[in-house]
């Protein structure tokens, strides 16, 4: 049964690159454009992994991660966030908020899938 992954990013190109890679790898993909938008998907659905950007309008990634961790059914669902090499402090902030791991931008498909492999199977 294919796993469902929620991708949250305000950049359309990133969303497309990530969803293309994941769909080709056999995952089902849901797409949210920002934190608020993503929360709609989390209601009553079975999501196996969330991948989110940190900088987004309305609700940013850190807030989204905190919000997800506050939901009972998503306490243990892995969350990966997208970040750049230079944002070391953000990395700690996101981990403290409850993120499982991260993917460094820019990335190639194999890097993305390798990161995924660490958190879902």
């Amino acid at each position: 049964m294919s796993k469902t992954i929620l991708i949250v990013d305000d950049s359309e190109s990133i969303r497309e690159v990530v969803s293309f890679t994941l769909e080709n790898a056999g995952y089902s993909v849901l797409i949210g454009t920002d934190g608020d938008d993503a929360l709609k998907f989390l209601d009553g659905r079975n999501i196996d992994l969330v991948i989110t950007d940190l900088h987004m309008p309305n609700m940013n990634g850190i807030e989204l991660i905190k919000a997800i961790r506050n939901m009972d059914e998503y306490k243990r669902v892995p969350i990966l966030f997208l970040t750049t090499e230079s944002q070391q402090d953000k990395k700690n902030e996101a981990k403290d908020a409850g993120a499982t791991g991260w993917i460094i931008k820019p990335f190639v498909p194999s890097k993305l899938l390798a990161a995924l492999n660490k958190v879902i199977r």
Binding site: K75, P78, I79, K95, G98, T100, G101, V119, I120
Partner: peptide
């Protein structure tokens, strides 16, 4: 395991 890590993976 609080942040969704599965050590077995």
């Amino acid at each position: 395991m609080h942040n969704g890590t599965n050590p077995l993976l």
